[in-house]
Design a protein around this nucleic acid. Structure first.
Lengths: 111, 111
DNA sequence: TTAATTGTTCCATATTCTAGAACTATTGGA
DNA sequence: TCCAATAGTTCTAGAATATGGAACAATTAA
């Protein structure tokens, strides 16, 4: 199994970030990671809004978030600990990530 | 030919916006429209970076921008006048759109 | 060892995108 | 009024991408 790829900060693109964040499952994962700041395993997100998603699908979503540079995944025993790269990202992209999170949060409140 | 659909402001979603803005052609179109504020026809964008794109493709990209709520297209004679909906969008989504534009601009400067 | 757990990879099917060809709408001129 | 020119849209087949089940890999605990 090849090691997980994490792009260095200067290879992270706006396009990659927006692409990663235009899928509802990935948004949910990222927002949750961003909210608490405490790392979570992938399997935390197997059950989303009372229906289960296949772990192969979940794995792909994590890969996309990872390779977009939004999260970092570190192996801890049998699981992965995932956390955001928000600090780095803010340095590079200014208020963009935060503005996106805010906009999504506002939207979520309306339901 | 069915009339062009423009979503009302409260049907515009963050997800739709991010999706529309994660394609390099659409970004180029939108940024250009945002920069000058003066409406442009679709065919203005047929030639992008010394290669021509098919007009059917261009038409699809405009449709996606339009249905995401990012631009408005009004028929003026034989062509369409396209302009952004930035003012409306800023009211609803705060600084997000601007932050995205800024980030893309900064990125563009590096080349 | 073996079994259990977590996540990745493989691959077939489903969905979405691209772009050529045909079509529609509008305008200007003969 | 009719024809040609121009600007975009729609249709559709092939290309690219996403989804999810099944097999696999890595780690740990018994």
């Amino acid at each position: 199994m090849r090691p997980l790829y994490h792009p260095p900060i200067d290879e992270i693109t706006v396009q990659g970030i927006l692409y990663a964040l235009c899928d509802p499952i990935r948004v949910r994962i990222f927002m949750q990671l961003a909210r608490t700041d405490c790392p979570k395993s992938c399997s935390t997100f197997l059950h989303i809004r009372d229906h289960t998603l296949p772990k192969s699908t979940l794995s792909q979503h994590f890969r996309i978030l990872r390779e977009a540079g939004l999260i970092r995944s570190e192996r801890k025993g049998v699981e992965l600990q995932n956390h955001t790269r928000c600090a780095e990202l803010e340095k590079k992209f200014g208020p963009m990530i935060n503005a996106i999170i805010q906009a999504y949060q506002k939207e979520a409140k309306k339901h």
